[in-house]
Amino acid sequence: MSVRLKTLVTTTVLTAAIAAPAIARDQINIVGSSTVFPFSTTVAERFGKSTDFATPIVESTGSGGGLKLFCSGAGVDTPDITNASRRIKSSEVELCAENGVNDIVEVKIGFDGIVLANALGNDPVELSLQDIFLALAKDVPNGEGALQPNPYTMWNEINPDLPAVKIEVLGPPPTSGTRDAFAELALEGGCKTFDWIKAMKKEDKAAYKSLCHTVREDGAYVEAGENDNLIVQKLEANPNAFGVFGYSFLEQNSDKVQGSLVDGVEPEFELIADGDYPIARSLYFYVKKDHVGVVPGIEEFLAEFTSEDAWGEDGYLADKGLIPLSDDERDDWAEKVKSLSPLSM
């Protein structure tokens, strides 16, 4: 090869490598929550198989990371859809707007129950939200209208009906969306059963939030990582411990663990769907309207996701552990998705 030819080849290869992204994408790019990941991927796979469109790529980045990527720009080199296990925050909507992402379509897809489970072979326990708060918060009321560092080490110190075992709860770390939802629904739910704390919400919202959302750090709550399967395994090894994880893991491991009753309600599919079980959060995904029609297949993907076959009561997502919305709500959201009506906060 002559020197000139070599230079030519090298330049061509380099330009090819650098210029490549300019070509349009032919598959949908989805990022976001690891909780929504199993559902999003199921729809993506079916969509790829049943249509002529390429199978969408689904990345598991976490809700916050996903929204950050989603809001980083409007071009086709940014994701089309982001999954979230919580609703988008107004700060994120602003970030999106700053980067030129204005029309966002919101889709609520269903619920996820968060369970407090222990190994089979123990008696199932019945907890109230207040019990959960008293067991896991960093500071708790001392009974005289003031706070004290959490003194409880045994469950029966909180509530004489509970077993006389050490408080030991394995749960997700603060980076996890499950942990956020658990703090908001379970801890805050128990926290505001105290009237004077509830009154605090109006006066000093920051103090109220920090009191109700802060988990104790003295070893009673063990951060067991993001992997829920690992928590199930640890519960098997330690019969006195409780674990905090998503409902689908309870369903898959019903031969190993059992869910505790919360406020008298069992964590069961129907009870979560009806809204009776108190620790259930909504799952969402967000779509860039500007990408509809640019990246092929987005509309068809949305139609597949919001079809009764997928998210309905007997749909394949329910088999994967997604708790469906009520009939009315499904109709409502499907209508919004069809007309691509933009998000309103």
């Binding site: 999003s40 796979e45 390429a54 199978t55 689904v58 990345e59």
Partner: peptide
């Protein structure tokens, strides 16, 4: 860099996900 992803199709070139 986005390689922790659900990808069904077998990639055949270095520019495919």
């Amino acid at each position: 860099i986005g390689m922790v992803a659900f990808i069904v199709d077998v990639p055949t070139s270095i520019l495919e996900p």
